[in-house]
Design a protein around this nucleic acid. Structure first.
Length: 284
DNA sequence: CACTTGACCTGTCCGC
DNA sequence: TGCGGACAGGTCAAGT
């Protein structure tokens, strides 16, 4: 599910609710998704909520808790003073009821101020308790730079892509070792923004095209962040609200509709088992 | 070695 | 109304 803008939106929500809070209890209903000892978390205080690529990293008093939401993971926090489960959504005129826990709630973490529910329809996500910083770092060791790190330079990007000359450019952008945080939605959007076809082999790209892709990455991610990410079926903010980026998306999920720039019908195609959507006229 | 495909899961939607 | 198949935000391991 969530790509960088969605996970960052969740991180901000968790930071606001949980920093300084102490974990009172942990209820693991589906042990398969939980690695390590849940009892280690009891009594630990949340010192910091960080993010690396699509992974959340909680720094606790004496442990780290690392969380990957994969496709359909959700973290929903219900404060104690919410007497009922009516949640205000991302649209000001809409409310919906979230009865928690429900059948897809697999882990429940209680704090002094409220309760955090981990829901995951497809059960691909996971949580992992790490004893120390070194153990936590092995989890994120293979990830490439974040889009906003100083080491994510055009020179770095060219070099990293250089090793993947026969790969479709969309596939290379999905590789978390090259740049961290892009998924199916934002690779489509970045490539549209850069006017490059997703199935172009990396080796065929000109310097100008690589530079255009490089510049599009932060541009697309920033706009998505401003809109709280993209909500398809399952993405929810920590307070149950949703992201509105999808209405701004130029190509993702719009196959068969008209290009917002040139009116040509958008096309989709499988590239390494992922659906790519693009404009056959704007993108070269 | 580099790249692609299947597997992990459940739910939804579409065509027959 | 039901049934089969394709598909869904991600990432490993196994296969070519």
């Amino acid at each position: 599910m969530p790509e960088l803008p969605e996970v960052e939106t969740i991180r901000r929500g968790l930071e606001k609710e949980l920093v300084g809070q102490k974990i009172v209890s942990v209820d693991v209903r589906l042990p398969k998704l939980f690695h390590g000892h849940a009892e280690d978390l009891i009594g630990q205080t949340v010192l910091d909520i960080g993010r690396r690529a699509k992974i959340l990293v909680w720094q606790l008093t004496d442990r780290y808790l690392v969380i990957h939401l994969k496709m359909t993971g959700q973290l929903i926090f219900i404060p104690n003073d919410k007497k009922h489960s009516m949640i205000v959504g991302g649209h000001p005129d809409k409310e919906y009821s979230l009865d928690l826990p429900h059948k897809h709630t697999h882990i429940i973490i209680a704090f002094g101020s409220g309760t955090l529910y981990y829901n995951d329809l497809r059960r691909f996500g996971w949580m992992k308790v790490c004893r120390d910083e070194a153990a936590m770092k092995t989890v994120v060791a293979e990830l490439g730079p974040e889009y906003n790190w100083p080491e994510f330079t055009l020179e770095y990007f060219q070099t990293a892509l250089g090793r993947r000359s026969k790969t479709a450019v969309k596939t290379a952008l999905l590789d978390q070792g090259i740049v961290a945080g892009l998924g199916n939605i934002y690779t489509d959007e970045v490539l549209f923004e850069a006017r490059v076809l997703p199935d172009r082999k990396v080796g065929s790209l000109t310097d100008t095209e690589i530079a255009a892709i490089y510049k599009s990455i932060p541009r697309v991610l920033k706009v998505a962040l401003e809109h709280g990410g993209t909500s398809m079926k399952d993405f929810r903010h920590v307070n149950g609200g949703w992201g509105t980026y999808l209405t701004f998306a130029k190509v993702y999920g719009r196959a068969g509709e008209k290009c917002k720039v040139c009116d040509t019908k958008l096309v989709s195609k499988k590239i390494s088992a992922r659906t790519a959507t693009f404009c056959p006229h704007c993108q070269k």
